[in-house]
Design a protein around this nucleic acid. Sequence first.
DNA 1: TGGCTTCTGTAAGCTGGCTCACAGACCCCG
DNA 2: CGGGGTCTGTGAGCCAGCTTACAGAAGCCA
Lengths: 248, 248
Amino acid sequence: MEGALWYLKRCDLFERLTPEQADRLNRRALVRQYKRNALIYSPTEPGQTVMVLAEGRIKIKDITPDGKETILAFIEEGELFGELALLDEGARQEYAEAAVDSRVLVLPREDLLWLMESRPELALSITKLIGLRRRRIENRLRNVLFLSSRERLVRILLELQESHGERYCNRCEIRLPLSHQDLASLIGVTRETVTVVLGELQRDGLIRVQRRRVTVTDCRRLAELGNGILPVRAPPPRHPTARPPRRL
Amino acid sequence: MEGALWYLKRCDLFERLTPEQADRLNRRALVRQYKRNALIYSPTEPGQTVMVLAEGRIKIKDITPDGKETILAFIEEGELFGELALLDEGARQEYAEAAVDSRVLVLPREDLLWLMESRPELALSITKLIGLRRRRIENRLRNVLFLSSRERLVRILLELQESHGERYCNRCEIRLPLSHQDLASLIGVTRETVTVVLGELQRDGLIRVQRRRVTVTDCRRLAELGNGILPVRAPPPRHPTARPPRRL
DNA sequence: TGGCTTCTGTAAGCTGGCTCACAGACCCCG
DNA sequence: CGGGGTCTGTGAGCCAGCTTACAGAAGCCA
């Protein structure tokens, strides 16, 4: 019962609450645990709560009736999610699932709305959060509309590196379990296409691909590719006379 | 100079301002006029103002370096736009242009931020606005990823009818000048594809197409198409023995 | 009122990415 | 430690929508 507060305080949004505010949230918040792949909420469920990720990683996604999946976002520790429940109690329109074992703080929307009323600067922060995510989605839309699968893949890797990467000099580990299918769902292509393009990028020495794990091995060059500084090369001839260079 | 206030009051967001609030806005707001196709702001410009459309129609769009265009939204009279300037003074990332001759109320972001601080319920309304538009974009993304050009066109027509339509029973005029290119930019296909599909829909008696003008002539059936109640038919055989039925 | 520009209509041919179909690698759990 | 899921790799064939290329219609303005 006091765990909630402890987690809350670690989230930038909820620094410096007054004692009453902290107390109310502490009384009303819940901490929940989810195993990898467990469902946290689903699209038809009315949004009555907003969540903060205390520990783990969350995948926000959507699935069509015929089983095709889009991933809208991955949530990092300390981030808010399910925040559109603040707009109204309508259906969530998306799934949230634990990408790894996770611990989640659940806040009733009324309490957060109440808090926003009493703390305008917090309300503004949340507005900004929603707006920034909107910009991100708008960008995704642009990418889907205008870029080839290769370019989209490069950009999503850059984006993931930015928000979920651990940087060492010119290399960067993406701290998310990422299957080819996940990447495909992020950029709107098939798994097979991702497999091929990842293979090419690896051959070019830009990234290292392991099972459900991607490491950017040349951040600089990848960024240049993504920004159109380097032309995004067409795939190399598929059957060169010599063996393609191996890279471990 | 007192025009500003008059326009403001007609916008739901700004009802019931206190005299001081009204006064401050009135002093700081500007009214600007734009001719059809005039540019209101552009992507690289830092966002220092938020706007309310007093009269006319605004097109929010984006263009790639090689000239391909997406339309993100059309703005109706009384609606807010350029609202992401509230997040930060970063680049706007989009164009706003007058779709017809328009009159726009320009509010410095600081004043609106100040107003949001002093009126939590207005801050919340703006948050909702941003959030609702985010949902709309998320939907667009889903559509682009998962639907055929035909289905996307049907859905965008339904959406436009909802937000910009004038309804008479089972028919509905879309009160926007809409070229085939515009529709193409809304759903992410080429103009030629739109021309063909519009032709089919017209032949099926669902819509009526005139120059830069679309009328839904059978709202009910169109809605059923869009919701997957009716199967979204493949195009009819292109060269039937008999002439295709003419409809005026 | 005539010329220019924008918008619409049509069609032939091409192609990036999808579908389908396996095969082998890896991993977790019993 | 073995067997069934899950993930990755590859390739042949297909197809929706793009590209390219015109042509006529409709509005605009000089």
